[in-house]
Simulated scan of single mutants.
Amino acid sequence: MKYILILTAALAACNASEPQVVPQPQASQTATIAKKVILIDVRSPEEFQAGHLANAHNITHDQIDKKISALTTDKNAEIHLYCRTGRRAGIALETLTKMGYTNVKNLGGYDDLKNTYPAQ
């Protein structure tokens, strides 16, 4: 019985002294943690279907206040807007700013952007 107690105490001491290993993220994992940009095409659904930037969501400028929460409720989220010329994106930017969104950009018009950004 005495040997069992000694053995149990020794095993407990060994386990207690082992350092806890906390895995560190790999370089490939940290790249996927990068900040996500929400890209919104504020043109009509017909314009969107005719061509849009890759990964863009379609919410018309006059519906942005009602539908933005489907994409994010984070008021600090990075949101980029575009339309045909930049005018409707400007209206959407103003709406989102009034709603408290702080990191919104108007990228301008689709025709100018499709040469820089991948189109879909």
Rank of each mutant, 00 (worst) to 15 (best):
M1V: 15
M1K: 09
I4F: 15
L7F: 13
T8I: 13
A13Q: 04
N15S: 06
E18D: 08
V21S: 04
V22Q: 00
Q24R: 09
P25D: 09
P25A: 12
A27H: 09
T30E: 14
A31K: 15
A31P: 02
A31H: 09
T32Q: 15
I33H: 05
I33T: 13
K36M: 07
I38D: 02
L39A: 09
L39V: 03
L39D: 04
I40A: 07
I40E: 02
I40C: 05
D41M: 09
R43Q: 04
R43W: 06
E46G: 11
E47I: 03
E47S: 15
F48C: 00
L53I: 04
N55G: 01
A56M: 09
H57R: 09
H57K: 14
N58L: 01
T60M: 11
D62S: 14
D62Y: 14
D65P: 00
K66F: 09
K66N: 06
K67G: 00
I68Q: 03
I68H: 02
S69Y: 04
A70Q: 07
N76S: 13
A77V: 11
E78I: 13
E78G: 01
I79M: 10
H80T: 08
Y82C: 15
C83H: 08
R84L: 12
T85K: 05
G86A: 04
R87D: 10
R87Y: 12
R88H: 12
G90F: 00
I91L: 07
I91V: 11
L93A: 07
E94D: 10
T95C: 04
K98A: 11
Y101P: 00
N103C: 02
N103E: 03
V104L: 11
K105L: 10
L107T: 05
G108P: 15
G109E: 09
Y110D: 07
Y110A: 09
D111M: 13
D112E: 10
D112Q: 12
D112R: 05
L113F: 06
Y117Q: 00
Q120W: 03
